[in-house]
């Protein structure tokens, strides 16, 4: 049972980790993330990178949809903007990755800002449709603006580099992606203990009250769109460095839905939920494929039977979560923590 965590100062009271237990487990997590690539095979390393990218993008969408209450179907489009920015810059200017990634984020933020403009007038599903339109429009630009985007063939690029170090292998990319993902989540965590983050939540919960408290709705909604798109842009930039080829088909509409599902399955308005959701959405389809492979020795026609089933099982899992765990994976995590906090008593 957790007791004796009284605080002497407000700084200590508002820290992210308030107990030494939390600090200990977070250190273990960081250590685990550090050791993982040394032990993992190339397939697990590849998955680790994918989850890292998904975590950054999902956290961004969580800021917008989960915390500010603005539904967006434009996340894949914003990631595309980031990816194309990185591809174009690294091919045409040879800038190192910290600068290209930053510019990718800023470019996506600028596009997100524009897409967010209707959000003062339209909410809910209508905003989803407006962002959907923007996403289709961006896809059109990726495919048709051939002089910059290379049309349907897309762009290929050199690996990320800095000070003579080249991030060519998945092993190297892991050490680029995962620290950025950790940083992205920590920054978001900071955001929600300061005035701007609170203003976002206020707009989600009751926008009229927010205005009465002196929060200009349009400015904060646009800020949320821009920040969310910045995250998407950086994630897209990492995506470009990871695959080293960017085509319009890299960022289909289903990808936007993928991220929205990650936010919902993980738990809207919960940063941990975003992480869990991103991992769930990335890993479960892979796990189902592995299951198929494992079944093949016993049922020779398992692939024939299972491959069309995968999508159905995956969909059913999501629906199941919505029904039985409407607050998302984060809620399960909260219950587990509660159990250990109260142990040996029961709630």
């Amino acid at each position: 049972m957790r007791i004796g965590d009284a605080k002497q100062t407000y700084v200590a009271d508002e820290a992210i980790w308030t107990t030494s237990t939390q600090k200990f487990w977070f250190s273990i997590l960081l250590l685990g993330l550090l050791i993982f690539p040394l032990l993992a095979n190339s397939y697990l390393l590849y998955l680790g990178c994918l989850v890292g990218i998904a975590v950054i993008s999902t956290t961004g969408l969580n800021i917008l949809t989960g915390f500010t209450g603005l539904i967006s179907l434009g996340q894949a489009g914003f990631m595309g903007v980031g990816a194309y920015t990185v591809a174009w810059l690294s091919t045409n200017t040879g800038l190192p990755f910290p600068i290209t990634l930053l510019l990718a984020g800023l470019m996506a933020a600028a596009v997100g800002f524009l897409v967010g403009l209707p959000s003062l007038r339209v909410k809910g599903l209508y905003l989803a449709i407006a962002t959907l339109a923007a996403s289709v429009f961006l896809h059109f630009i990726f495919a048709e603006w051939e002089s910059v985007t290379g049309g349907m063939e897309g762009l290929s690029l050199e690996p990320a580099h800095l000070f003579g170090v080249t991030f060519r292998s998945d092993f190297a990319m892991y050490f680029l992606i995962v620290p950025l993902a950790v940083l992205a989540v920590l920054a978001a965590r900071n955001l929600f203990r300061t005035r701007i983050g609170r203003a976002f939540i206020a707009i989600r919960d009751r926008d009229i009250s927010a205005e009465i408290l002196g929060i200009p709705l349009l400015r904060y909604k646009l800020m949320s769109f821009a920040l969310s798109s910045f995250y998407a842009g950086v994630a897209g930039g990492l995506f470009a460095y990871f695959y080293r080829v960017v085509t319009p088909e890299s960022f289909p509409l289903t990808m936007s839905i993928f991220y929205l599902a990650a936010v919902i399955v993980g738990g809207m308005g919960n940063l941990l939920g975003g992480i869990l959701g991103a991992a769930f959405m990335t890993l479960v389809p892979e796990a189902l494929k592995l299951l198929t492979a494992a079944l093949t020795p016993f049922f020779p026609n398992a692939p024939v039977f299972m491959s069309p089933m995968l999508e159905i099982i995956f969909g059913a899992l999501i629906v199941g979560f919505l029904i039985f765990e409407p607050h998302g994976l984060a809620e399960i995590w909260r219950r587990v923590r509660r159990f250990f906090h109260l142990w040996p008593f029961r709630s």
């Binding site: 609170r198 939540i201 919960d205 009751r206 009465i212």
Partner: peptide, 8 residues
């Protein structure tokens, strides 16, 4: 009718 932010 109270207009607090219920989630906070």
């Amino acid at each position: 009718n109270i207009a607090l932010f219920r989630g906070m």
